[in-house]
Amino acid sequence: MCLGVPGKIIAIYEEEGLKMGRIDFGGVVRESCLDFTPEAQVGDYALIHVGFAISLINEDEAAKTLAILREIVDLDDEIGGHPQEDTVP
């Protein structure tokens, strides 16, 4: 439900009492509301849904997840598990 896209906060400002920010989605910039992420700082990554940051990306958790997954892959290589061929429909 709900397309959420991670973007980097490149500016923070206030507009009519709302905490707003400019979010860089890898080259595309859009204004978004940061009122739900009061702790947000420039440089943080936020998950944006319909023009609102609903969560800040926890970069440590992301790195940890990738490290764990990487281990799974390496482990798999050691055991010699062979990914099966995909079937073409």
């Binding site: 739900f36 998950l47 609903i54 969560s55 990306i57 926890n58 970069e59 958790e61 940890k64 997840t65």
Partner: peptide, 13 residues
């Protein structure tokens, strides 16, 4: 999905 989700969620929201 721990890079985005915490057990308590977004309190201000």
């Amino acid at each position: 999905y721990s890079r985005t989700v915490t057990p308590e969620g977004n309190r201000p929201a």
